[in-house]
Simulated scan of single mutants.
Amino acid sequence: MDKYAIIVAGGSGLRMGTTLPKQFLPLCGKPVLWHSLETFLTAWPDVQIILVLPKDHQQIGADVVNTTSDPTRIRITVGGETRFHSVKNGLALIENPGVVFVHDAVRCLITTNLIHRCYEQTVEKGNAIPAIQPIDTLRIETPDGSQLLDRTKVRVIQTPQTFFSDIIKKAFEQPYNASFTDEASVVEKLGVAIQLIEGEATNIKITRPLDILLAQKILEERTA
């Protein structure tokens, strides 16, 4: 079965406090984006990657692609106004039926193990959404103040969010809605049941300077 990974790299460096978008910041000698690309390239020899980049960062993205182990399996397209539109642009390049992974470029600690598990569950159940249980106490704001949530019933959602191509492509034919915060919310709008799978605590999203330090430590321990 064909495998496609849409890597969404449309973020900015605002919360990171840098002028360079966070997906291009250095991490253990390579850009953050490189680590995400390389893990998908090594997951299978036949996976095809569609990299979605802002219009102003196409060249720097191409430069990163050319340093990977197999640039021929990576195509670049332009991002849209929102994540929804960026993913839709990526989906437009998928012609054959298969399994589609949609992954945040800045979740650069993704492992091939999680990628494989998402694929296997998608083949079995139609989709796979990585999620982990929060370790902090959670409260939700209410008109009367706040209310404690049962954290055993709450999950923190990660990527790669994985679907059969026909399902996700049909879902993205819907008009954009502000409630579409990720791919699962778009697919769920069709009435498709979302299937969670255990994610990884190390599958963090690079957002703040502290995240770079954590990611560097994790990568150093993996290669030690």
Rank of each mutant, 00 (worst) to 15 (best):
A105N: 13
V106G: 08
V106Q: 15
V106F: 14
R107N: 10
R107V: 00
C108D: 10
C108V: 12
L109S: 08
L109V: 13
T111A: 03
T112K: 10
L114C: 06
I115M: 03
I115R: 00
I115K: 00
R117N: 07
C118G: 07
Y119D: 02
Q121P: 02
T122H: 06
V123G: 03
E124G: 11
K125G: 04
K125L: 12
N127C: 15
N127M: 02
A131Y: 06
Q133D: 07
Q133A: 13
Q133C: 03
P134A: 00
P134C: 03
I135V: 14
I135C: 11
D136I: 01
T137Y: 14
L138Y: 02
E141C: 12
E141P: 09
T142Q: 06
P143N: 10
P143I: 04
P143M: 11
D144L: 15
G145S: 02
G145D: 03
G145P: 03
D150L: 08
D150V: 05
T152I: 01
K153E: 11
K153Y: 11
K153W: 09
K153G: 05
R155P: 06
I157A: 12
Q158V: 01
T159H: 06
P160M: 01
Q161G: 06
Q161H: 07
F163S: 00
F163Y: 14
S165W: 07
I168H: 01
I168Y: 02
K169Y: 02
